[in-house]
Design a protein around this nucleic acid. Structure first.
Length: 154
DNA sequence: GCCAACGTTGGC
DNA sequence: GCCAACGTTGGC
């Protein structure tokens, strides 16, 4: 079992949206490192902190679960999509994704500021300066601590 | 393969 | 809206 953090802008897709739809394909990731995490490193059942970026305040708001295996992101072939990638070949798709299932919304959201100030979360990627990666691995102890701060028991 | 220019992310 | 960080692109 591995742990992850996935970022989403709540204006585009929030934890409430995930709670409503229950399961969502994580479309639009166009960064190779993040793609490799989804393609190679995730296992069905892994848990991920759901993080709101570009929010007020930014922070961790819940938990999602990796649902199923990696498959091609359909938006890369959709000319009308913002995520259309004309260089991606349908015979060898460049962008793969996973579905995520809703697990929990934290009773108490954990702001980025709070995470940065907490010594127990030292070294967690999302708290480091200049980290723009939308999908990052999370250590088990960090995952558990964020859940505790959020008032949720795994 | 270097690296300058450019685009994007995302906190503030 | 600003801008630091940093990934990508493309000329050479």
């Amino acid at each position: 079992m591995r742990y992850w953090l996935i970022k989403s802008e709540p204006d585009a897709f929030s934890i409430d949206d995930l709670q409503r739809v229950k399961r969502e394909p994580w479309t639009g990731v166009r960064n190779y490192q993040a793609r490799n995490s989804m393609r190679d490193d995730m296992q069905p059942g892994d848990l991920a902190i759901f993080y709101h970026s570009n929010a007020t305040p930014p922070g961790s708001v819940g938990v999602a679960r990796v649902a199923g295996e990696a498959y091609p992101d359909p938006t890369q072939f959709d000319e009308k999509s913002d995520y259309y990638d004309p260089k991606s070949n349908p015979d060898a798709p460049r962008w793969l994704l996973r579905d995520f299932e809703f697990v929990a919304k934290f009773p108490t959201p954990v702001s980025l500021t709070e995470m940065k100030e907490d010594p127990a979360l030292e070294g967690m990627v999302v708290t480091l300066k200049g980290t723009r990666l939308s999908i990052t691995p999370v250590e088990a102890k960090h995952f558990k601590h964020v859940c505790k701060l959020g008032g949720w028991k795994p």
